[in-house]
Design a protein around this nucleic acid. Structure first.
Lengths: 333, 333
DNA sequence: TTGGGTGTCTGAAACGTTTTAACGAAAACT
DNA sequence: AGTTTTCGTTAAAACGTTTCAGACACCCAA
């Protein structure tokens, strides 16, 4: 096992001082061509790899960002993560992944890890609206960009999608199909997305001249396919004629549960999901859904974060809100 | 923006030396109860968070591991990642995520980042069989555990699933259903998984007294749903009666393409995938597949890696091979 | 000839931990 | 009482970078 080679040994072999090697690494334009190539050759010959921790310690900042998502098993977050990873990697940043699984404690632990690693910034889809934790990070000099969550204050960056509008789109579409008895299958009430999509749903009812209180809400403990299937068990007892699910995972699980119980979709029940994950188009009855620009969400969020890190003085905080898009397939009348 | 607080300030406030604070952090049993609680209080009051880079620099090893996957958009890898993250997080390790997207260059770049970060170890599903890169890591003292890839040498850990057997299972099942004209839709030939599943398929043919050369192979440039849909366009021109896809993403895309072209599954074409991702059960025609213990794969690999890191002397390298499981649904006769 | 640039490189001091040898005090043995 | 052990603590030396004030050589203008 070869001993790791340090900048000093490179310097020795190239016949220069360690400071010069550092310059070759960090501001190559400052060093004369001949010296530079000599150093570069030494680096190659010795297989030198910069010690990131030493660099971070001295320079005061790292080349890593933290990404905290709610459910890595959800293609929505996977797509976001792909956007983040692509751009971060292009810019030479490493991504530390944290999966909160919807647990506040786990999220807290992830943030602690990020703080210990002195990440340059954090991208987070918070699992609830408690902003104190994020304040704590910011007070440590770690930039935070909210992903799929609107900004709580103007002095921060956030990238989100208009969930109220998405909810309205979904339910308006169901109503247009003749929906009478509507159910909204939601995730935990603490999740902002669920609340806003619900509000959008209620607005759609109101806009159609109906009482928003008509909307029956079924709250599930998690937003997974399994939870969707459980929801189906509840619903078959008192079948609605239209269901809006807070995400596609719930919708796919629900769809499966309904079909297994012999319920016809969309004839008996009109069903629409949210996110338009890739698999929505391939399901037993292809799923109508509300599309979000997921990959883009991750990419833009990363762009904002890196800009905030690299140009702290010129950086202007931005709150970007994308618009969702209705995708109609077979599962709705 | 509060200045970050160091161990020294904690020491000052608690009236002890920095060394003692370090002991409280790393070997609390070595310090007297009263001193310890005094230090712990100071830590809490000042909001001290250990500087991971400084710690790494001095201690010579970090609390991070690198995870390099081929396609973060594939639920197979997502499940693996979930297993990795869960365990790593439990043990206080951070996970640096690298997505190679099947590109050798990108994989190389990820490994470089891992080396710079001085990760404690690397979990990797290599995108090809070039082992030199991994040797280079190991020679730097970074443990490597192969995920979903058998070991190339006995002195390394690897966790995989028997792909030859999986291929045999799949094709035997197709043959039992009366398959005559078989196609294997594969990913890039450089991927070991594709090759081994193919070998398994050929063995199944041989075992049935047929010529393995009968197996028509359609090689796609990537293993995604999109590629599967393209494969469908090729296949409809000369329709086989049974198709084995190298993974479920290909199979789902292919299924979609076939159905759109008016081909009935399984009546005209029997179709089986590989991985048994969650969405396989929910597709238009629910997909028969070969199940792999994905989450477990990630967890066990992490277990091995951390054992190798934490107990380098007692650690015994292990090559674990799980057995796949045939899951029969509607897409096969 | 002097004075001031300019371009290139050096040396040493930091950054915040961990680790080690050494120390004093108290406890446990002769 | 004297000696050894044990316990708890400390001071100082690393770890590998980056940074910054300066040094040195060279050239140009005055």
């Amino acid at each position: 096992m070869a001993e790791p080679v340090s900048i000093k040994e490179v310097a020795a072999r190239a016949g220069v001082s360690p400071g010069t090697v550092s310059n070759v690494l960090n501001r190559p334009e400052k060093v004369a061509g001949s010296t530079r190539s000599r150093v570069e050759q030494a680096i190659r010959e010795l297989g030198f790899v910069r010690h990131g921790s030493a660099s971070t310690l001295r320079a005061g900042h790292s080349r890593t960002i933290g990404l905290s998502v709610i459910d890595i098993g959800n293609p929505f977050f996977t797509d976001v993560a792909a956007g983040v990873e692509d751009l971060a990697s292009d810019r030479g940043y490493a991504v530390i992944l944290g999966n909160s699984s919807g647990s506040r404690a786990k999220e807290e632990r992830n943030l602690l890890v990020f703080a210990e690693q002195r990440v340059r910034g954090v991208l987070i889809t918070p699992s609830d609206d408690d902003s104190r934790r994020l304040e704590r990070l910011r007070s440590r000099g770690i930039s935070v960009v909210l992903v799929d969550h609107p900004a709580e204050r103007p002095d921060q960056c956030a990238v989100s999608v208009n969930d109220v509008m998405g909810g309205t789109m979904a339910v308006s579409h169901l109503l247009a199909g003749g929906a009478e008895r509507l159910v909204y299958v939601a995730g935990p009430a603490s999740m902002r997305q669920c609340g806003e999509r619900r509000e959008g749903a209620e607005r759609a009812l109101a806009a159609a001249g109906r009482d928003p209180a008509e909307l029956r809400v079924l709250e599930m403990p998690s937003m997974t396919a399994k939870a969707g299937q459980q929801a189906a068990e509840t619903l078959v007892a008192d079948l609605p004629d239209a269901v809006f699910c807070a995400n596609d995972l719930l919708a796919l699980g629900l769809l499966r549960g309904l079909l297994q119980a012999g319920v016809r979709v969309p004839e008996q029940v009109s069903l629409i999901g949210y996110d338009d994950i890739d698999f929505a188009a391939a399901s037993a009855v292809s799923l109508s859904s509300v599309r979000q620009p997921t990959y883009q969400l991750g990419r833009v969020a990363t762009e904002l974060l890196l800009d905030e890190c690299d140009n702290p003085n010129t950086h202007a905080h931005q709150q970007i809100m994308f618009q969702p898009e209705l995708v109609i397939r077979e599962s709705t009348r």
